[in-house]
Write a protein that binds this DNA or RNA. Structure first.
Lengths: 375, 375
DNA sequence: GTTAGTCCTGAATCTCTTA
DNA sequence: ATAAGAGATTCAGGACTAA
């Protein structure tokens, strides 16, 4: 399925880059992609910051073995410049309501996080991937490094319309909110891509389960997910399986070959399986007055709260009256309780066969009618 | 026990500052302390939360936010300058083989980590404090922020002689290495310091169990532990109990008073090296979605109750669909039976070799996979 | 005394649409 | 652009009260 394209051949046509792997430098490729063209980004950038032993700059050029403080600073600086460049280019490509995930370890994640903030990204959460089976610390001189950190950020502070499938996550998690600490095994066994020699095809292949949760949480079917450090193509494989589109950027042909074969073998899920649970937020809005117009509520109907402490009376204009005052069901619910906000749909009840029933039940009936009428 | 001293009166004599609280500005106080004089530092600096307006719980009660003046900074730049100044001053005071711990959240920890690296500190681990009882995300727009991050660093890369009580930690952890993810409740109940009015004495008091593990891991009895943001004095209280010395720096008299009384009441342990490191056991809670992520359950799988009266279909989002409706395994189990509640794990079955098998069997398999060496 | 129900609170960067 | 109105949203644990 995924074609491979040299970056130089890229045009603005979506068919030219969607569900493909762009071969070349990450920043150069990002700069050729159209502005505001992807819904989400998942990035697993290199963090070769190891300052002992062989030292490589992010561009893979070798650094003379020096271990003084100045060289450390120099190396961090190079890493920061690299990070800034790709995060900036990625931000241009991201849609205004898109979000970005970056995964890293303590070697690089602090620098990445600071740069994200510097460039105007707005951090939504940091998420910890707890490993069930991390590598032990062999020297016994530190804690067992048992997690990695992901940062989830929107394009900027004001972007409130980002995708977050809150209700689905909660329903899939024993009906409690999904937390920021996730537990997954590292990628081993059959899932781990091997080369012809049996050696692992990529040193840092991420588990598909991790990507699945990321994409199920923050994207919708049909969205485009960009991975600027495509590597073994986990992002592409999971995106395809879950009915999302992907774009990968990768420099090394060996990784491109492995990822291509891997993604080709993925069978996408059917549409019904991909539906995402949504909550009230996604329901069409109903004006209270429309219940009166539809005859579901008669003017003059008496309302009360669930414990019958306060009563109100429905007026023909869609407001309710409490004593001499009148206003929306929400306003008056707040007023009687002395609060500054109230959901009138769930606060006010009417009598149905002797049982206090919330107005929300009538709203459901109304939505049913509208759905039937539309069909 | 702890005397309080104005910074101006400080001399180089250790008796002049050990087991005392220095009242004044953090950097000024650090600059008056002797070079290379403390074995460890634990710092809980302001997080720079950048809160917007008020936040209310769904029941309309207002969240008591951390809106203190000491947490307000004009910009990331201002916060960086502040961070750099105190980390630099702290580094001078730290012994060559000393280590520093800094705790923070995603608001500030990335900036702190980057500055630590810039200044020559060498990160040994990042440690995640998982909270058993974090505050929920009330608006349902993000993941529940359920952890904070601590960075543990040596004074520089070449410092190999830092204290790490590997064997003691392992022995106290069911004979497996201590991991970087720690589980503790937040500080509440009797441990939480209250003012005369019953209000919390400090907005961000840390649990003693957290500090106990930090000090047991990285200090020895008789060591001096510095806390440049002393606050309610948790570091001092735990240090005293575990037979370590402390130095606190704090600006606000109210916090100094609370910490002084608190530390006075602490009784040191006879054998601090035998102190038990208490932590919560990791609870093996399994989310239904994790079965899907792990490939144990495929989207599209048909479920039914034991007597095959009702069927449901698994979706990729971790919910199950019955007809046009979808929800958690528990909600939909209750729905089809017309009940208020239902245990979806035991109610829903799938076909295994012709026999209806409850989802709970797969949960058992999952528990095996997710078993983590003791928390 | 026991148990069940209610209330309170914690480092929080917490909405969306229409006028 | 800003402002205002509609209306959607919570988990664990300790303290307290009522049965």
């Amino acid at each position: 399925m995924p074609a491979v394209r040299p970056v130089a051949d890229l045009t603005a046509s979506r068919t030219d880059w969607c569900d493909t792997i762009l071969k070349g430098d990450c920043v150069a490729a990002l700069e050729r992609l159209p502005e505001h063209s992807v819904d989400a980004i998942f990035a697993d950038p290199p963090y070769n910051l190891q300052l002992g032993g062989d030292l490589h700059r992010p561009d893979q050029s070798k650094v003379d073995a020096v271990d003084d403080a100045w060289d450390q600073f120099d190396s961090f600086q190079a890493y920061d410049a690299f990070t800034r460049a790709w995060l900036l280019a990625a931000r241009r490509v991201l849609k205004p309501n898109g979000t970005i995930w970056v995964i890293g370890s303590y070697h690089n994640i602090f620098r990445v996080g600071a740069k994200l903030q510097d460039l105007g990204y707005w951090i939504l959460n940091d998420v910890v991937w707890r490993k069930t089976n991390p590598m032990p610390n062999f020297r016994g001189r530190r804690f067992q490094n048992a997690h990695e950190t992901m940062i989830w950020a929107s394009r900027d502070q004001k972007a409130k319309g980002y995708t977050f499938n809150y209700e689905a996550l909660k329903a899939s998690n024993d009906d409690v909110q999904m937390r920021t600490d996730w537990l997954f095994p590292i990628c081993t066994g059959a899932e781990r891509l091997k080369g012809a020699d049996g050696a692992k095809a990529h040193p840092t292949q991420k588990p598909e389960a991790l990507l699945a949760r990321v994409l199920m949480a923050s994207t919708r079917p049909g969205d485009v997910v960009l991975d600027p450090f495509f590597g073994s193509g986990t992002t592409g494989a999971v995106a395809k399986r879950l009915g999302r589109h992907f774009v990968g950027i990768e420099r090394e042909q060996a990784y491109i070959d492995a990822a291509t074969a891997r993604i080709d073998a993925v069978e996408p899920l059917d549409n019904p399986e991909l539906a995402i649970l949504t909550g009230k937020r996604a329901e069409p809005r109903i004006a209270f007055v429309s219940l009166i117009e539809a005859g579901l509520v008669a003017p003059g109907l008496e309302l009360s709260d669930a414990k019958r402490r306060w009563t109100a009376r429905v007026r023909a204009d869609g407001t309710v009256a409490v004593g001499n005052e009148a206003g929306s069901i929400h306003k008056m619910g707040a007023r009687v309780q002395g609060l500054d906000a109230c959901n009138g749909w769930t606060f006010w009840h009417f009598d149905r066969k002797g049982a206090p029933t919330p107005l929300d039940a009538l709203r459901q009936d109304m939505r049913q009618r509208m759905a039937v009428a539309a069909a």
